Amino acid sequence: MDALKSAGRALIRSPSLAKQSWGGGGRHRKLPENWTDTRETLLEGMLFSLKYLGMTLVEQPKGEELSAAAIKRIVATAKASGKKLQKVTLKVSPRGIILTDNLTNQLIENVSIYRISYCTADKMHDKVFAYIAQSQHNQSLECHAFLCTKRKMAQAVTLTVAQAFKVAFEFWQVSKEEKEKRDKASQEGGDVLGARQDCTPPLKSLVATGNLLDLEETAKAPLSTVSANTTNMDEVPRPQALSGSSVVWELDDGLDEAFSRLAQSRTNPQVLDTGLTAQDMHYAQCLSPVDWDKPDSSGTEQDDLFSF
């Protein structure tokens, strides 16, 4: 819950932080000083300027060897085509990944977070970031790969997607708890209302004896509580940590079903599988986004697919 609360507080303090972009060759504004600060901008989305290598189908939802083989196929196909790589912007948030063309600003792909089953910074092609997700059109699994400016960037994108998945799962947990509370309150309110109706004398007997209905007592009954809980029953509950912020979080049926399955089948359902080692994760978390744009010590960066 700490990640969720800190993310909400950060967004309320400075929503404009989320509009910064990394990996864009110096076009961005001043960047936060450390990885923790940038992680807090996830709610509205972190932007990464990358190059799209392509996509291939895979048979399993996750796995280092599986993704490595898929990336190898994608890279080989991209090299064989001889075409310049498409420059894209990857927007990562707890909602998922939005992929747009840098030149036309046209939407290429919009992947809900619950469809993503794996992401990684490839070991062999260490400047490549990739994720595996279920197609929104059918049940097939797709591996999408992107060329980053350097290994640090690939690791940073991988960690960002993993963190977005974690925050999304926490949102789901909060929403589920809130819905259970509202359902319980609604049920209790309905029981109270039913009890009051059972003990209320029939209207005919009131008229016969000349008694008047006590409207004041009726007004004191917990009807307002019942209506408050039943009027918006169809509205999706939102985490309290975000009250007053500009973010509107809505959970669709697909996300609810997917996270429910994860909660039942996995020990740590909030953790998205990645190909990063503990050492890689520690190294990337210690980086400032400013470091992502620094040239690798191995030599001059080449803006070309064939540089790796």
Rank of each mutant, 00 (worst) to 15 (best):
V192D: 08
P15K: 07
G190P: 12
C199F: 07
L251A: 11
E301M: 06
Q270E: 01
S16R: 07
T300G: 12
R29T: 15
V207R: 15
I98W: 00
N34Y: 07
R95T: 01
D126C: 00
G190F: 03
Q163F: 12
E65P: 07
A162D: 03
P237Q: 15
S112C: 15
W35C: 12
S205I: 07
R95N: 00
E142H: 03
R115I: 01
R95M: 03
K19H: 12
T160L: 15
L159K: 10
C148H: 01
I74W: 01
E178D: 11
D304V: 09
E257I: 06
K5Q: 04
T36N: 10
L17H: 14
K84F: 05
K87N: 15
R196P: 12
I71R: 00
Q136T: 13
A154V: 14
C119H: 01
H125V: 00
N138S: 12
V128W: 00
N105I: 02
L272W: 03
A7D: 15
L11P: 11
R196I: 10
D253K: 06
S140W: 07
L203F: 07
Q173T: 13
A195C: 04
A195Y: 02
Q285R: 07
A241P: 13
W22M: 06
G54P: 00
L305W: 12
S227Y: 09
T36I: 14
H125N: 00
T300Q: 10
A156C: 11
S246T: 07
L223G: 09
E142L: 11
S49E: 07
D293S: 06
V92Q: 00
P289D: 05
Q279N: 11
G96Y: 03
R266T: 05
Q163Y: 14
Y114G: 02
A3W: 11
L107K: 09
L223N: 09
T149P: 15
N229H: 09
Y131S: 00
A70P: 01
K176F: 08
F129Y: 03
E109M: 06
V248D: 09
T100C: 07
E177Y: 13
Q264D: 11
F171V: 15
G299M: 02
L276T: 02
A145K: 00
F169D: 03
L287H: 11
K184I: 15
C143N: 01
C119V: 02
Q20N: 15
K87C: 15
Q173S: 15
D198P: 15
S307G: 01
V58S: 08
H137K: 14
F129W: 11
V248Q: 12
D252P: 10
Q197Y: 07
S265D: 10
Q197I: 04
E250M: 03
S21L: 05
D296E: 10
Q106D: 01
S175V: 09
L107G: 00
G82D: 02
L213E: 14
W172N: 02
L11H: 11
V226M: 09
I113N: 01
W22I: 06
S246Y: 13
E217Y: 05
A145V: 00
P239R: 10
F129E: 00
L43P: 13
E188K: 03
T274V: 12
K176A: 09
A3C: 09
K84I: 05
K79N: 00
D273Y: 03
E44D: 13
V92N: 00
A221H: 02
Q270H: 15
V192A: 06
P269M: 02
M153Y: 10
T209R: 15
L215T: 14
E33M: 12
Q173E: 15
L141C: 08
K152M: 12
E257C: 06
S243W: 07
N102R: 01
R238Y: 07
L103A: 05
T218H: 04
M124C: 05
A7I: 02
W292F: 05
R182K: 13
S307R: 13
G24L: 08
S298E: 07
A185G: 14
L57H: 06
D273P: 06
A130V: 00
Q163C: 14
R238S: 11
E44A: 13
E59D: 05
V58A: 03
S6V: 11
K184D: 10
N211T: 06
S140Y: 06
L141D: 03
F129K: 00
L17N: 13
D256A: 05
T149N: 10
T36P: 10
A221S: 09
T104G: 10
G8F: 00
L213M: 12
E257N: 04
K30L: 11
P15T: 02
K62C: 03
A121R: 05
N138D: 15
S117F: 06
L203H: 05
S243D: 08
S14R: 15
L212N: 12
A68P: 02
N232T: 08
E301G: 08
P202T: 14
D303F: 04
P237G: 07
Q60P: 01
L255D: 02
V58F: 01
M233V: 10
A80V: 12
I97S: 00
